[in-house]
């Protein structure tokens, strides 16, 4: 390739700096993409995608498209991804994907097909573009003395010249999209449908068992994790305390007093609150869970 390019005369030889940039940013972009797909938390996915987009933006700049690179970073990475994060915080915050795949074979099939696709397309591109010349954009967007005064001017000339109609139509598309989003998210309320404070309060206290926030780990907690359930005085988990925003997972908890070897052996462990519960673990006449006002809600 490079030999042929050199023979073509008008070839632009890709410099070492660009090669270094590519080999640094290419893996970053790849890692970002993989991280986006693989991380279970949607917020993490968004952050991974931001890194990929930033890398791509730099790659655009490197590839003689500085305007596009700027737009990529400012509009895409900035505006659009912020929009994503907004919506994510609105709706997707507590909807982390579970590990279990519901569609049988979906993951395996997707992976196999994806690898096959990547191999085929990659191989095809590699074969087809072996002799791809690199004319370079110096001819159309070189600085003073060229056909245009730089990249921005070249893009502007094309955009407001040959692509004017498409540009206008795209503008209309954007407006339609904005109006469409308004229509889609708008909630029609009949006059008088808005509920008063009293009604809202009534609905809250009558409609649910937990008008207040869910109980925290409480004084009987055996772990620091939000993923661990709160404990009732007798050591049983309080069902209402499970956080809905956190997917169930195994959490290391301290054993109850007197029930495991560590306690019986007299080893005191850090942060252990069970020492204070020592007598309660064996109590038989204490308040039973849910039987009276003593039980936390």
């Amino acid at each position: 390739m490079s030999v042929l390019a050199a023979a073509a005369g008008s070839e632009v030889v890709i410099g070492t700096g660009e090669t270094i940039v590519f080999w640094v940013l290419g893996p970053v972009a790849l890692a970002g993409a993989l991280g986006m797909v693989l991380s279970r938390n949607a917020m993490h996915s968004a952050l991974w995608l931001v890194s990929t987009m930033l890398s791509l933006g730099v790659l655009y700049v490197v590839q003689e498209a500085p305007f596009l690179g700027a737009v990529q970073i400012i509009v895409y990475t900035g505006a659009i991804m912020i929009l994503f994060l907004f919506v994510l915080m609105l709706v997707g915050r507590d909807s982390a994907d579970s590990v279990v795949e519901t569609l049988r074979g979906q993951r395996i099939a997707a992976t196999v097909l994806g690898i096959g696709f990547a191999a085929l397309v990659g191989a095809g591109i590699a074969r087809a573009t072996r002799d791809l010349p690199v004319v370079g954009l110096a001819g159309v967007q070189a600085g003073p003395g060229g056909a245009a005064d730089g990249n921005v001017e070249a893009v502007a000339a094309a955009l407001y010249g040959r692509y004017l109609l498409a540009f206008e139509v795209t503008g209309a598309l954007l407006i339609v999209a904005a109006v469409g989003a308004l229509v889609l998210t708008h909630v029609e309320r009949q006059p008088g449908e808005r509920r008063t404070q009293k009604e809202l309060s009534r609905a809250r206290f009558l409609g649910s068992d937990t008008p207040q926030t869910h109980p925290g780990p409480g004084v009987y907690a055996r772990a620091n994790s939000i993923a661990a359930p709160g404990r009732l005085p007798d050591g049983a988990p309080a069902p209402a305390s499970f956080s809905t925003g956190v997917e169930p997972q195994r959490v290391d908890e301290l054993p109850p007093t007197g029930s495991t070897g560590a306690e019986r052996a007299g080893i005191r462990h850090s942060g252990g609150t069970d020492a204070a519960l020592g007598t309660l673990g064996g109590a038989t006449n204490g308040p039973t869970p849910g039987s009276g006002s003593g039980a936390p809600r």
């Binding site: 986006m36 797909v37 968004a46 997707g92 982390a96 795949e101 992976t111 994806g114």
Partner: peptide, 11 residues
């Protein structure tokens, strides 16, 4: 592949 394996519509 991400489209295929992720279930969160935003992702």
């Amino acid at each position: 592949v991400g489209v295929l394996v992720r279930r969160n519509a935003i992702v």
